[in-house]
Structure formats: structure tokens, C-alpha cells
Computed example of a mutant assay.
Amino acid sequence: MPNPSNKPSLVTYVNDRIAVRMTIIFGSIWCVYAFLVFSLIPLAAPAWQNTLLYISNCIQLVALPALMVGNAVLSRGTDQRAAEDHAALIEILNDVRAEVGELKTVTNDLARKTDEVARRPPSEVLSISDEAVINVTDEAAPAAAPASAPTK
């Protein structure tokens, strides 16, 4: 039964440390080499085969649960990091949703204003600045008749 408090007891702490250490040791290549040499001992000393088989079975009976506990302890940290990452990603997602909502509002407002401007009748006077006013509907004034030409 797990300890409900946040701080593990000394026994739990020591057990977890031993399980993790055993998992690291059994997962190393040096352990593979040691078991390879251990498995070759009966070739050199056939009389020790029954004793070595007993020792081998004992190692397996201890190693399997130790590896399972070690993996469970190591996965606790991974599960906690995954939960923290999930919470951070949900917060980012909510921020993105809020920003997308603001962008939709701005886009809709811009589209509404653009539609209003497009529906307005064209202006006859165009002001580029405060000083210059151009009347778009003025036609060019007709050229004046020459004054020196007599009419008959």
C-alpha cells in the first residue's frame, strides 16, 4: 500500500534506491558479460553444474521482481513528467484558443468595416492631405477660343 504523504518513508526510499540500482546493474553490458562467464563455468568444472544451476535459479528469482520494481519506480518519474507536460500543453492550448478567438473577432470586425466601406457611394471629393483637395467629377475645362480671330 503506497504511503499517502508526499514524503516517502525511509524504508520506501531505501527500497526504491536498491530496486533502481539493481535495474541499472542488471541492465548493463557488464552484467551480460558476467552472466556469460558464469554460464561457461560448467565447461571448465562440470562437477559444479548442479550448484551453479541452483545459484542461477536464485539469481533469476531475485532479479525478475527487482527489475519489475525498478522499472515501476523509474516510470513514476516519467508519469509525473508526462502529467506536468500535459498540464502545460493544456494551458498553451487554452492560450492559443483565446488568441484565435481574438483573431476571429478582429477579422470579423475588419470584414464588417470593409463591407460598410464597399457599400458607400463613391465620393466626389478626394482629399489626399489637409491642403490638397481633388474634385474627381470635374471635367477638364474646354479650351478657350483664340481672341484675335475675327468672326464673320
Rank of each mutant, 00 (worst) to 15 (best):
V62T: 13
T107V: 00
A141R: 13
S75I: 02
N108P: 04
L126H: 05
P8K: 03
P121T: 06
L61Y: 15
Q60G: 14
V136Y: 10
A44Y: 10
V73S: 05
L64S: 04
S127V: 10
S127G: 10
D16G: 14
T12G: 02
E84Q: 07
A19C: 09
T151C: 06
Q60I: 15
D138Q: 09
D138S: 05
E116I: 04
R120C: 06
S148I: 04
V37R: 07
P121V: 04
H86K: 05
S123V: 02
P150M: 10
T151F: 13
L10W: 12
D138E: 12
L103G: 00
S9K: 03
N6M: 10
S75Y: 04
A132Q: 11
A147L: 07
I18M: 11
A144W: 12
D130N: 13
I29F: 15
C31F: 15
W48M: 09
I134M: 02
P122F: 00
A44I: 15
I29K: 15
I90H: 01
L103R: 03
E99Y: 04
R81P: 00
D79S: 09
P122K: 00
I92M: 13
T23K: 14
N3F: 09
I128E: 04
R21G: 07
F35R: 09
E102F: 09
P46T: 02
A111W: 08
F35L: 15
V32E: 15
D79F: 09
V73D: 02
D16R: 08
N108C: 13
E99A: 05
T78W: 02
E116L: 10
A19K: 05
E131K: 11
G101A: 08
I92D: 03
G27H: 10
F38P: 03
A149M: 08
L93D: 11
V136A: 08
N50R: 14
P8E: 05
V14C: 14
K113L: 14
R81C: 07
A111Y: 09
E116V: 03
A143C: 08
V73G: 01
S5K: 13
A47L: 04
N71I: 14
E116W: 02
A66H: 01
V133Q: 10
S129Y: 06
A34L: 12
I59P: 04
V37H: 04
G70A: 03
V14S: 11
P150E: 12
L89I: 02
A149P: 00
K7L: 14
V73L: 03
N94P: 00
N15D: 12
V32C: 09
V100L: 12
I25E: 10
T105A: 10
S127Y: 13
Y54D: 03
S127C: 14
V73P: 07
D85F: 08
A45H: 11
A82V: 13
R17S: 06
A132Y: 15
N6T: 10
L36P: 00
A45C: 08
A19R: 03
V14W: 07
C58Q: 14
K152S: 13
P65N: 01
T107L: 03
N108G: 14
L52S: 07
I25V: 15
V117K: 15
V69Q: 02
S75F: 07
R21T: 13
P4W: 02
S39C: 04
D138K: 05
V96I: 15
A19W: 02
D79V: 10
E84W: 07
W48C: 03
A44M: 13
D115M: 14
S129R: 06
Q80F: 11
P121Q: 01
Y33L: 13
